[in-house]
């Protein structure tokens, strides 16, 4: 198990190197001049040239990439943001708590909503409530995040005045609407996934045997069936967590939350390559670690997998 974990952690190095190279290449070869983005269209040609030299943009692509990796490996230096002049990790880490809180609360909501409703929907297959949940989950998955966010703001901030419309100054209250915005679509996905895997499990022979032996229905469903149905659901939860971390751009933008998604968009607009790279590398790292945790969690859910890891 430890050997497997170490192996997976070591694999992170080539993954992160590959991600860095791809993002560096994309940022470099997409049109747009950081000097113009930073200084504005009114700036003089001389000023732009001076800035290019200051930022090292006059060096060839491969040398710049090599220098970038060298600084990371030798000094853990991810460079300075073109936009703010701060070390990029200062800017990036200042935003991690917001994104992590949003991703975590979103995932909790999605899981709390999706898992029990998915089980209920499977157990009550073809009932009115099952039909309602299937239709509702389809609608919620298909609903554009932007629209849902604006709807929530209009109802709860503008008309009812119960919750703040944006920002993070109101503490945990600020997270309620963004959490619903990011959590509900993923909750619907989890619901649908749980329903389909549960439907397979409750038709298995061992379930019939358990029922025949007189095991209470709750134990049959929640202990025997659900445990076996959980593997694909855990994968969905894990990937959803990663997706929310990096993909809550719209929620962060509409709710004016200073998170990583908002920073990536701003940095891409400003052609702030060091900042984009730092954000994406951090997200890739988070995603890889979450997926590793998901794989390790399999072992606790399914003893067969634990045995495989041990080999």
């Amino acid at each position: 198990m430890v050997k497997y974990t170490v192996k997976r952690l070591l694999l992170l190095i080539p993954i992160l190197l590959g991600v860095a190279f791809i993002i560096f290449t994309i940022m470099d070869f997409t049109p747009g001049d950081p000097a113009i983005r930073i200084l504005g269209p009114e700036s003089s040609v001389e000023a732009r040239e001076q800035l290019r030299v200051e930022l090292g943009l006059n060096q060839p692509f491969l040398i710049r990439f090599f220098e970038y990796i060298k600084d990371i490996v030798l000094n853990l230096d991810f460079g300075e943001s073109y936009r703010t002049g701060n070390p990029v990790f200062e800017d990036v880490f200042a935003r991690v708590p917001v994104s992590l809180t949003l991703a975590f609360s979103g995932m909790v909501l999605a899981t709390v909503m999706g898992l029990p409703l998915g089980v209920y929907s499977a157990v009550k297959q073809y009932s009115k409530s099952d039909s309602f949940l299937r239709v509702a989950s389809t609608v919620l998955v298909a609903m554009p995040t932007f629209w849902l966010a604006m709807l929530l703001i209009l109802v709860f901030a503008l008309y009812l005045g119960w919750l703040p419309s944006g920002g993070v100054t109101a503490g945990w209250m600020s997270y309620i609407l963004p959490t619903i915005t990011v959590g509900v679509p993923y909750g619907s996905k989890i619901l649908r996934m749980t329903r389909s895997t549960m439907l397979e499990e409750i038709r298995q022979d061992y379930v019939r045997t358990a029922r025949a032996k007189g095991v209470p229905e709750k134990v049959v469903i929640y202990k025997h069936s659900l445990q076996n149905a959980l593997l694909p659901v855990i994968t969905t939860i894990g990937t959803s967590f990663g997706a929310i971390m990096g993909g809550s751009v719209i929620a962060e933008s509409v709710f004016n939350m200073p998170g990583l998604g908002q920073l990536i968009v701003l940095s891409i607009e400003a052609k702030d390559t060091p900042c984009v790279l730092a954000c994406v590398l951090l997200l890739a790292f988070f995603f890889a670690v979450v997926m590793l945790l998901v794989d390790l969690f399999y072992a606790f859910v399914d003893p067969r997998i634990k045995a495989k890891y041990s080999k």
């Binding site: 209009l154 503008l158 509409v254």
Partner: peptide, 18 residues
């Protein structure tokens, strides 16, 4: 002086008095 990334949200904040 508050930065709001989305103009629709900013307009709602104006309407709510924030």
């Amino acid at each position: 002086i508050r930065y709001v990334s989305d103009t629709s949200t900013a307009t709602v904040q104006l309407e709510t008095g924030e």
